[in-house]
Design a protein around this nucleic acid. Structure first.
Lengths: 334, 334
DNA sequence: GTGAAAGCGCTAACAC
DNA sequence: GTGTTAGCGCTTTCAC
């Protein structure tokens, strides 16, 4: 490993290790001249400080963890992009973990973070969680921020979007477009996120005196096959004339299903969905979306995490909600 | 930080720290009974080993670095997904770094990895690189695997795709569809990846006695605006009847450009592109793609990296090429 | 303004 | 099969 360490620098310079260490960290105790000498030698010998020795000594890692269900997802990829940028600006490292929606995997990741490996955690929790104790355990020890997804019964700092309002408004949009039988493709039911979206949908129907269509399908989109056939069955059996989809992964199968069922979007079925697809406009027909500010969410979550590090953040139990934008396109036109 | 450490466990159990350490690592020197006692106590006290102490001592981190231009990109997100899964199976951690195509940023990441922070690196290098010394420096010190992208003049283990053949065949496909003026949207020109794609395109034209249309645009797609207008200008000025796009980010702007220019895809302009868009089939018109096996590339690269760790990989200078698949859809139909 | 010494938590070499 | 000791490379008292 790095053969050139502080001791080596010190001996080359006829200084003590302590002085070199202080000079490298730009301590005010060290004379400008010494600092310059140390820096020059460090550069000459291509000195790279050993992060483990430093972390061990200082009890901090300059590293944060990001726990998400999946990386290969338009929303999470954007959020991670933002998080990595903030972390880099703060000279921190980013560890990535995927839970694949499994509470067990999530639990094991979280528990391992109790070791001090990271200084803080950004998490968008998995759907399927049995015992949630680990959330509290981790947050008692290090700063933690939930982003996008969260649990009702867990307190903490949370960056979310206006799930209730956006679902309500999206549903209202379909109502105004003339839909009478509006279905809902449910997901994330165990999370606040999913509950609020569902409630927004239900309330919008109620407020417009439409049957609260019980035809929700709960989509476990482990794989595309099962997902597509479930969505297709739903449409074929319930014959909705409008669909609000709570996640992108359930909306795109509607396109395939309608093709197979010979239904026209939007004539026979109007569709709107939560999505971060960059090119929803290019679909056939262009897809109406509830667009969450994914990058901003990641950015905000990471920024707050760093404020927590420097004690410039005091509220341990707050939810900050960013606005989604509803973009009406052809798929929901009346 | 973790108040319960090996010393604490040792004193609780009336054992030495060394014995506890050995028991935890399931050493054969320790009796089954002692192991059981240690494990029980570790569980009871929720002991989590300090990774920094361990890494410092053992000179290994159980961590790998993934360096990519962008996370929010269909190809890289899939590759990272695969890499994280392999790493998790091997009980390793994954650090993510984005270069945003900057050689300077890449250089600073790579140089910092000389500290021993990670045991190995998976990298898809940035386009814009001045001094490439750091590649060699890092690979001399720790195992490193290039994936998807690489430089001609850097040796190493490389997992790529059949860039030449796929570009050749895609171009041939447009020729066979009747195109006479086939343009090429160039990118990654500084990388082997980009050079091979370009060469495949050029050779396919030559072999079919078509003018090697000099109308390449070099797309610096920093932002969508500049990208779209460049693509639009290219189409308006050169009037190609076919386009091979070397990256997804240059192909989708063609859809917008054609709309604005009142051109029909595929009637006026046939289009095929490298892409990992999950739903190319749903675009209007469905987009013909050269689909790289992104997940497999990530999986293969990570798997080989772990083989290098365990000395089950001996060739320090090999290129493994996976096959892309060309999926012909409406956008290139004759 | 600089140095000596201790110690972060763990593991490996060497006893016995 | 278990204990003792030393040390990974760094930072931080505490001296002077």
């Amino acid at each position: 490993m790095g053969e050139v360490n502080i001791k080596k620098l010190a001996s080359e310079l006829n200084l003590s290790a302590a002085t070199v260490s202080r000079a490298l960290r730009d301590s005010h105790e060290i004379s400008a001249e010494t600092k310059a000498r140390v820096m020059e030698m460090a550069k000459k010998l291509a000195y790279e400080p050993n992060p483990f020795a430093s972390s061990l000594r200082q009890q901090k890692s300059k590293t944060i963890a990001v726990i998400v269900p999946e990386v290969a997802n338009n929303f999470f990829a954007l959020a991670i992009k933002a998080i990595e940028e903030v972390a880099r600006a703060k000279d921190h490292h980013v560890l990535i973990y995927q839970t694949h929606e499994s509470g067990e995997i999530e639990s094991s990741f979280m528990t391992s973070l109790l070791s001090g490996r990271v200084d803080g955690v950004l998490i968008s929790p998995a759907c399927h969680v049995a015992n949630k104790k680990y959330f509290q355990k981790v947050s008692e020890k290090i700063p933690m921020v939930f982003f996008d997804r969260d649990h009702d019964d867990i307190e903490g700092v949370k960056i979310t979007t206006d799930d209730y309002e956006s679902a309500y408004n999206a549903t209202l949009h379909l109502v105004e477009a003339g839909c009478k039988k509006i279905g809902y493709l449910a997901a994330l039911e165990t999370l606040t996120t999913g509950k609020k979206r569902l409630q927004g949908y239900l309330d919008a129907l109620k407020d417009n005196n439409l049957e609260s269509m019980p035809a929700l399908i709960e989509g476990n989109c482990e794989n595309n096959e099962s997902c597509r056939s479930k969505v297709k069955d739903f449409i074929a059996e319930r014959k909705p004339d409008g669909i609000v989809s709570s996640i992108e992964e359930l909306a795109l199968p509607c396109y395939y299903a309608c093709k197979e069922l010979n239904l026209n979007i939007p004539k026979d079925l109007k569709l709107i969905t939560y999505s971060n697809l960059a090119h929803a406009e290019l679909l056939n027909p262009p897809l109406s979306t509830i667009n969450q500010p994914a990058f901003e969410i990641g950015n905000e979550a990471a920024t707050i995490l760093f404020k927590m590090f420097s004690k410039r953040w005091y509220d341990p139990n707050i939810t900050i909600s960013l606005k989604s934008s509803i973009i009406k396109r052809e798929s929901s036109r009346s």
